[in-house]
């Protein structure tokens, strides 16, 4: 038991370290290209310098207009927190909306048919189009009624959160509905659901007490594709709303060090989340499926 656990931990550390080496190699990529030609020596040099710089993270700086240099560390964390707020807000909002819609799909056959038919079009909406439509709607509403529902874009240090969260949650909700409805359909066919139905428990009870638990467990076992999808939408949304998240920070001051640090900041929590979730629930998931 202890032996297998220690083996697992050592495997994980090896995975983690190689992933970090990968990120450093990725971050140093601009050193590989000298103009449009390839410069291998320069690349190795850049990797070396980058690693040395990363060993003392507190001394890293970023410069505004190549003049003033400020310490990177508290600043990037503040930006990071802002992105995280939007990400988590959108995640929770879209999860709630998706659950409600999936529940309606479960109850009424009509909703089920309509939602499924519109999937192909809904899925294909680029996030840029969604953002534009939402912004146009807010402006149109402002012109009609003179009430500004939510702030459209940030100026200076102002924070906009409501609209980015709404915009991010629209494509995410569509994706969640697709995943959840597929899972619910799988679960309904299983014997325990049939048994609960046969015992006379009403549909609401079956859904919330039995099906939802199993669905959510496998749902929170996020695949990387979902996170990837959400993050790439978040990148564009931050750019559109000029919010002060980490992606905009990265775009404005894109030096090699800042890129690598932000990559690490984004990657490490996701890696930990997936691994820890894997560790604790792999048994449960096996039992369910």
């Amino acid at each position: 038991m202890i032996k297998t656990a220690s083996l697992k931990v050592s495997m994980l550390t090896i995975q983690f370290l190689t992933a970090i080496v990968g990120i450093i190699c990725l971050g140093a990529l601009p050193g590989l290209f000298n103009g449009l030609s390839i410069d291998l020596n320069g690349y190795l040099q850049t990797i070396k310098e980058l690693t040395i710089k990363l060993t003392s993270p507190l001394s890293l700086t970023y410069s505004v207009n190549h003049q003033v240099s400020r310490p990177l560390f508290p600043e990037i964390l503040i930006r990071y927190k802002e992105s995280l707020m939007i990400f988590i807000g959108a995640l929770l909002l879209s999860l709630i909306i998706a659950l409600v819609i999936v529940y309606l799909m479960f109850l009424y056959q009509k909703v089920n048919v309509v939602v499924k038919k519109s999937f192909i079009i809904l899925e294909s909406l680029p996030d840029v189009l969604i953002i534009m439509i939402v912004q146009l709607l807010v402006v149109w509403f402002l012109k009609k009624t003179n009430i500004l529902l939510v702030n459209i874009a940030a100026a200076g240090d102002q924070k906009v959160r409501a609209l980015p969260i709404i915009c991010l949650s629209i494509p995410t909700t569509i994706m969640f509905i697709k995943l959840l409805s597929l899972r619910v359909e799988e679960e309904i066919l299983k014997e325990y659901a049939l048994f609960a139905n046969a015992k006379g428990i009403n549909r609401i009870g079956v859904f919330f007490k039995h099906i939802l638990r199993n669905v959510l467990l496998s749902f929170f076992f996020f695949t990387k594709t979902n996170i990837w999808f959400m993050l790439s939408n978040l990148y564009i949304i931050e750019y559109f709303f000029n919010s002060i998240g980490i992606f905009i920070f990265l775009k404005d001051y894109n030096t090699i060090e800042i890129f690598t640090v932000s990559l690490l900041l984004i990657y490490i929590p996701i890696f930990l989340y997936i691994q820890i979730f894997n560790l604790f629930t792999s048994k449960l998931i096996k039992e369910v499926s």
């Binding site: 090896i14 995975q15 190689t18 992933a19 990529l29 601009p30 594709t225 992606f247 890129f259 990559l263």
Partner: peptide, 26 residues
Amino acid sequence: KVIEAFFDSFSVVPLTMIAYFVLQHV
């Protein structure tokens, strides 16, 4: 497994971000 772990960040970090970063530098 080692190779997969090395490229693991590619499957999480948005491609737009990486592409923009590299292209802009060039």
